[in-house]
Design a protein around this nucleic acid. Sequence first.
DNA 1: GCCGCCGGTCGGTGTCATCCACGCCGGGTT
DNA 2: AACCCGGCGTGGATGACACCGACCGGCGGC
Lengths: 144, 144
Amino acid sequence: MDDTDRRLLALLQEDATRSYAALGQAVGLSAAATHERVRKLREQGVIRRTAAEVDPAAVGKGVLAFVLVDATSWMGDSGAELAALPEIEEAHVVAGSASVLVKVRTSTTERLQDVLRGLYGIDGVSGTRATVVLDTLFERPVTP
Amino acid sequence: MDDTDRRLLALLQEDATRSYAALGQAVGLSAAATHERVRKLREQGVIRRTAAEVDPAAVGKGVLAFVLVDATSWMGDSGAELAALPEIEEAHVVAGSASVLVKVRTSTTERLQDVLRGLYGIDGVSGTRATVVLDTLFERPVTP
DNA sequence: GCCGCCGGTCGGTGTCATCCACGCCGGGTT
DNA sequence: AACCCGGCGTGGATGACACCGACCGGCGGC
């Protein structure tokens, strides 16, 4: 993982459709060498996958909220139950006053309420504190 | 935006390296027709971009935290100042007891502290409440 | 019923991903 | 110092694929 790899990662994060030739030119390498480095980055798991990034609003997910979930028991193993709610985009075990923090994206606030109801249905959940997002200033990839 | 488009989006979200031929076969369309639909989805902005997803841990970003930022003035226009902290991955204006919620990824907790210090340097910021992530259960794309 | 349009299939072409053989360079060994 | 060896890069070949244009069928509006 040298500096060239980091530059490749940065380029691929903003646009993974670039050809290896263009990519190589940007970092001063041949297309073949570039291909080889990217292949290794994939193999090592540094690049998890290459995916299309979809605009949530365009697929009817206009409501975003972060929900702190309080629980009376350990919830580190409830990943599957949380994943069963398809509107939950991320779930993290956190330190602090809550047990779990989830990021929820729904079409409407009514649907958000349904998700909160779903959360209460999970064993051990004793409360939720939702923070509704009014406007997203920016979202960007990690800077390597 | 019909059901075929939604299926294409789902497929491209899990792996955008698939060929149009394979993609078309999965939804029962020719490669050319698939190409055309994807082109339109891009043009309309439904697909924002296609990007490589990098494992944060592999690039030395092992610490994740969500920080609620309290402020004494309106912060909806402070996007640029927040974006100047490169460790901030997302920034949202929120309803509730705080003004802004940011997602921060750093190498160490010391660097997290530096980011918090940076936040206090922004005009109007009067406090921060950080919630540190212990374990990420899952992160997944929006379900169209 | 006719016309125009949207969305599809089919076929061709230039580009690109991908593989292979070879060469360069630096570190460790004798 | 000379040698060897492994990793990394280059150049070229080839087969697949993205991309484009021509054509066609169904559907809705006049």
